[in-house]
Design a protein around this nucleic acid. Structure first.
Lengths: 330, 330
DNA sequence: TTGAAAGCGCTACCAT
DNA sequence: ATGGTAGCGCTTTCAA
């Protein structure tokens, strides 16, 4: 590999000069500059960023940690689009992205990143509080996206899950649905706890009560949606609407309902949450609460970049407003 | 940050000894070893992999280039799952992944990777021949996945697109469909060229001819599927089956057909290609040709790792066998 | 078994 | 405007 010494030799200058020209710092004669630049190009020189990083203490790399239990990790219908804008936005700012799925064993992920001396970190979804502690202690800038645990003294971007669920329930109620069943994800998740709460509060506010058998708790997948429908249908009083706490569940519900020849929305309405890409492709297209995934990624990168660029950024949380997307399933 | 010098001081040994203990190379007394190890842990030492890489010439990083025109790049329904297994498999081997979408402007992507001195590269989908040339010239190991251009002297993993299309057409023919329309992606793409060829050859083999208006060429998206259907329906002789050259198009076709109240598969059958995740969630669930995306990622990583581990690997191409997945749309 | 010294490719400081 | 030199944190000879 070509080094600045090679350039220096060929151009007949010192390596300090080469470095200065290439980095654009310091002054020098135009002639020297040109000579160096030309030789560098001739030699097809590529700076060694590792060597640079050792001195400047800046690698130009941003680390990305994704909760491993989300399977698939990268092609995840919810997190995928977020990763996408993170990749785009970081590249615009000339940063590279080092990816890593959170490994349950030990705290390997942070280890890995620290070893590469990443400039900053973006953490998605669930992240063990200890890991965040380590990162804080190491003094590395980081931003949390949609974090499950509430962590103090940190920048984080979340969706207003409570509001989304509240509004969606109100919408359902206003549309005349009275027996709304609810399918929930695990309540340990901040998002699912808040969604469930929003749903209940809206019901209460309107003077309704949730029917005894009209709620079902499962995991985050399609199967939970299916199981939920079966659960509701077993009982005498059938719901007239189902509010699934994420789109995957809603899609599962839609599938089952179709095979049971129960018409949506005529016989039973279905509402989702997240607005993953396929929501609009379902038949019927899924009415859902849109979480602004692009904004999540964009804001996260912007915050991190601001910190890296030395702008004074005080830790705060950004709560994104959700929006109901009206389609055909309600 | 703690360095080996800090450990050396505290443990009362030289930094060479620390290095030797930590890297496990060379011998030393058990006592010294323990002392160093304990101090390292006490100090919460994290090796600086950049410094290590400068000497060993091994960064432990694998670069990943994705064709930028695929939008979304990461959450892509076809490439997403491939990225996923790449991430998983590389991590298992203790490599990190540096991601980069191919940037049309110049050859920035390779630049970026070379600057970080990645150990090897995985290139997905379209990659400019010049870029590959650069990489080859630089002597960096690399593997191509589903490459559009045919590149000599390279390891690459592709799907047998010709065979998939041929088989699928045969299946359609055997099921009794006679007027099969075909929706194609751009024929510059190796995959789409081969699929189109496979379709035609199967038809010819069975003594059928493609109807004049029964093929439509568009881009890779949903909209092409929709446009294709409209195109076919304008004409007098309506097809009894549509073979879309990818699932996104097939899904688009399904949507339109549904809104036109044309029953699938009773009035018109629809066959896709790729078997993206959502194919099975459609109503009706989509019959399609499965491309083994996991195998693509797995094989690519294995090949690259073999090269990196010094196993003699001669350049060859792996052609993965596709498989028809029978579902409800045919 | 251990330590001293050289050097990876670069930047940054101090001379000139 | 330019060159010499030190040093980033590490591995790797080579001596002791």
């Amino acid at each position: 590999m070509v080094t600045i010494v090679d350039i220096a030799k060929k151009a007949g200058v010192s390596k300090s000069t080469v470095s200065r020209v290439l980095s654009g710092k310091g002054s020098c004669k135009q002639v020297t500059k040109d000579k160096v630049l030309v030789t560098a190009k001739e030699l097809n020189y590529r700076p060694n960023r590792l060597a640079q990083a050792m001195i400047t203490k800046k690698t130009g790399i941003i680390g990305l940690i994704i909760y491993r239990k989300h399977m698939p990790v990268i092609a995840h219908p919810f997190y995928g689009p977020i990763l996408d804008v993170i990749a785009t936005e970081t590249k615009k700012a000339d940063y590279s992205l080092l990816m890593m799925a959170d490994n349950e064993v030990g705290f390997c992920p942070s280890d890995c990143f620290f070893q590469y001396r990443v400039d900053g970190l973006i953490l998605l979804s669930r992240v063990p509080a200890e890991l965040v502690g380590e990162i804080q202690q190491a003094g590395r800038p980081f931003v949390l996206i949609n974090n499950t645990a509430i962590i103090e003294d940190a920048n984080y971007i979340v969706n207003d899950d409570y509001l989304g669920a509240y509004d969606a329930t109100m919408y359902l109620l206003n549309k005349g649905y009275r027996k709304i069943a609810y399918i929930s994800g695990p309540l340990e998740h901040r998002s699912y706890r808040l969604r469930w709460q929003g749903f209940q509060d809206a019901l209460t506010y309107k003077g309704h009560e949730i029917q005894p058998h009209h709620h079902y708790i499962g995991d985050l997948g399609l199967e939970t949606g299916m199981a939920g429908v079966y659960h509701f249908l077993q009982k005498d009083s059938r719901p007239d609407a189902i509010f699934a706490s994420n789109d995957m569940m809603a899609i599962g519900a839609l599938k089952i309902l179709h095979s049971l020849q129960i018409n949506v929305p005529e016989d039973l309405a279905v509402m989702g949450f997240d607005d993953i890409e396929f929501a609009k492709w379902m038949t019927p297209a899924l009415t859902t609460v849109r979480v602004d995934k692009k904004a999540m990624g964009r804001v996260a990168v912007k915050k991190l970049l601001d910190i890296l660029n030395g702008k004074t950024v005080k830790n705060d949380r950004v709560v994104l407003a959700p929006k109901i997307i009206f389609r055909q399933s309600t």
